[in-house]
C-alpha cells in the first residue's frame, strides 16, 4: 500500500499525543509499517503542536512534508489554517471547530483571522464539528480528541472493532467507556 499521511495539529495540552498513540496503534494492528513523530517539551506548554502519523508497506521518514497529507486533523481553527498547506490537493480536513486565542491575540498584539473554514473549503473537503461541546455532553470535555478521531476514522481503512481495541489499550482504564462513546459520537457525525 502507498504510504498514508495523517497529521494531528492543535494546542499543547489538548491531547494530541494520546490521539497520535491511538492512530499509531490502529495502523500497527493492520500489520503496516508505521512511524509517528510527536512534539514534547517546551511546545507542550500551550504552544502550537503537530504530530505526524505515516503508515504503509514501508515508511522512510517520520514526518509529513507540506503538500503531502491525506488527512489533517485539527483540534483548533487557527491551527488548521497554520497547517492547511500540508494537505494534498485531494486531502481532507477534519476540524474541531473551536477557537482558542493564542497569547498575541489575548494581549492585543495580533488579530485572530476570520473566515478560516471558508478559506480552506475553497481547496479542500472539510468535515467540522464542535467536538468539545459533544464531549462535554458526554460528560468529559477532555475526550473531544477521540470524538475527532471517530470522525477521521471514516476516512481511514479500519473496522470500528479494531478502533475499540486500540482505545482500550491506549487510554486510562477508567476512561475506556467514555472514550468509546466519544469515538461512536464522532463516527456517527461523519456519516
Amino acid at each position: 500500500m502507498k504510504t498514508r499521511n495523517i497529521m494531528i495539529v492543535g494546542v499543547g495540552g489538548q491531547g494530541t499525543l494520546i490521539a497520535s498513540r491511538i492512530l499509531g496503534g490502529i495502523a500497527t494492528t493492520a500489520g503496516y509499517d508505521v512511524k509517528v513523530s510527536e512534539v514534547h517539551g517546551m511546545a507542550q506548554r500551550g504552544g502550537s503542536v503537530v504530530t505526524f502519523v505515516r503508515y504503509g508497506d514501508e515508511v522512510a521518514e517520520p514526518i509529513v512534508e507540506p503538500g503531502c497529507a491525506d488527512v489533517l486533523i485539527a483540534f483548533e481553527r487557527l491551527e488548521a489554517k497554520r497547517y492547511a498547506h500540508y494537505l494534498k490537493p485531494d486531502g481532507v480536513l477534519i476540524l474541531n471547530d473551536v477557537r482558542i486565542d493564542p497569547m498575541p491575540v489575548v494581549i492585543g498584539a495580533a488579530e485572530y483571522p476570520e473566515g478560516i473554514v471558508e478559506e480552506i473549503e475553497k481547496d479542500h473537503t472539510v468535515y467540522k464539528a464542535d467536538a468539545t461541546a459533544i464531549a462535554m455532553e458526554l460528560g468529559n470535555p477532555r475526550c473531544f480528541n477521540v470524538v475527532i478521531l471517530g470522525m477521521a476514522a471514516r476516512h481511514m481503512d479500519y473496522a470500528v472493532e479494531d478502533w475499540y481495541k486500540v482505545i482500550e489499550r491506549t487510554v486510562k482504564p477508567k476512561t475506556i467507556e467514555i472514550n468509546k462513546k466519544a469515538f461512536d459520537a464522532g463516527y456517527a457525525l461523519a456519516e
Binding site: R45, E65, A84, H85, P102, A110, E111, P113
Partner: peptide
C-alpha cells in the same frame, strides 16, 4: 518548485505558562 506555501499573517502560538 513545491506548491505548498503556508498562509500568510497567522498569529504565532508561542508556549505559555499553564
Amino acid at each position: 518548485e513545491l506548491k505548498a506555501d503556508p498562509a500568510a499573517g497567522i498569529p504565532n502560538r508561542p508556549p505559555i505558562l499553564c
